[in-house]
């Protein structure tokens, strides 16, 4: 818990590390727009290839980025199946009659229990998930014993396959882009970059430097607060509380017993932090010099030109395509 890392920043020395965070923020936004303008799978595959090239050029390990994608795996899977099952355009490719009856429902439940058990104690979670999906499908498709409750047809259309691949690649590109940014930019630099970019918002009354300070203080205190939660939980466990067992009522009681001390400590902490800031001459909204300086160099200029070319290319494709 002590060495928890906020964001996904991994120290390195590729050229992406030396870009100004503002350049990276704007680049990610522009590239996302450019990707959304693309209309065919081939274009997207080319774009994906470019992202891979960027990874290689920036000396970022592809494994790292893939790890960053892992938490979003379920989202990708869901998007894929959603498109494939519910897009009814184009020629019909596959039609399967599925049925639901007491026999396959019972077997399905058994399969689910088995899957959860194995997933809890085993290793190959992703493979198990696929096996489960396949198992349920086979049950619905092939176990058709009377009495049937209901039958429904599963249709896969040409456009459905196309769209599912299309949407998944697009998502992959977008997630990879933002992962590349967070991998190569320190959270401090990101907030600093955001602050500078938000500066024009001053005219509508948003003070970007106070906002950035709030973000950086939150970043600074997340590990401390997690640490504290752990300590309180350990203290309560040593007095016999068990956070993993008990009914709903027990659980709620345990959560409250965790939250109350945490709130009290958080209030005391914020009070003392405010005192410390004030005694060090902090006055909200007042001009202050900054230790971090962002510098927009030739690398940033080159990057900006390349990014704008990408945008121009996808606009052109959209217009002529």
């Amino acid at each position: 818990m002590k060495n928890i890392v906020i964001g996904q920043y991994v120290p390195g020395d590729g050229f992406l590390y030396r870009l100004d965070p503002r350049t990276k923020l704007i680049a990610v936004i522009i590239l996302m727009v450019a990707v959304f303008l693309l209309e065919t799978i081939i274009e997207l595959v080319v774009a994906f290839g470019l992202v891979i090239l960027l990874l290689i050029a920036g000396k970022i390990s592809i494994v790292r980025v893939a790890k960053g994608l892992k938490p979003l795996f379920v989202l990708l899977l869901f998007t894929f199946f959603f498109q494939i099952l519910f897009n009814k355009e184009g020629t019909l490719l596959v039609e399967e009659i599925l049925s639901l009856n007491p026999a396959n429902l019972g077997l399905g439940l058994l399969l689910t229990v088995l899957w959860r058990l194995l997933a809890r104690f085993g290793k190959f979670k992703t493979i198990l998930l696929f096996l489960w999906i396949a198992g349920i499908y086979c049950l619905l498709r092939y176990v058709a014993i009377a009495p049937q409750w209901t039958t429904f047809s599963l249709q896969i259309h040409e456009k459905g396959i196309e769209m599912s691949v299309f949407v998944v690649i697009r998502l992959l590109i977008i997630i990879s882009l933002s992962t590349i940014m967070t991998l190569t930019t320190k959270p401090t630099d990101l907030t600093q970059g955001l602050e500078k970019l938000m500066r024009p918002l001053k005219v509508i009354g948003i003070k970007s430097d106070d906002f950035a300070l709030i973000i950086s203080i939150s970043l600074r205190y997340i590990p401390t607060i997690l640490d504290e939660a752990n300590k309180i939980m350990a203290a309560q466990a040593s007095r016999g509380a068990d956070f993993s067992e008990g009914g709903l009522k027990e659980k709620i009681k345990q959560v409250i017993s965790l939250l109350v001390p945490m709130f009290i400590i958080a209030f005391k902490r914020s009070e003392e932090l405010a005192d410390a800031m004030e005694s060090r001459n902090f006055v909200p909204g007042k001009k202050r010099t900054r230790i971090h300086e962002l510098s927009f160099g030739w690398k940033d200029a080159v990057t900006s030109v390349v990014i704008l070319l990408c945008l121009a290319a996808s606009i052109t494709l959209k217009v002529i395509g």
Partner: peptide
């Protein structure tokens, strides 16, 4: 509860930043 910065360097700087000491 008086560590304001995200790093040691930032925290030592905090008071000076408020006093507008040049970088």
């Amino acid at each position: 509860n008086q560590f304001v910065g995200v790093s040691v360097r930032d925290d030592i700087a905090f008071g000076m930043e408020n006093l507008n000491v040049p970088r």
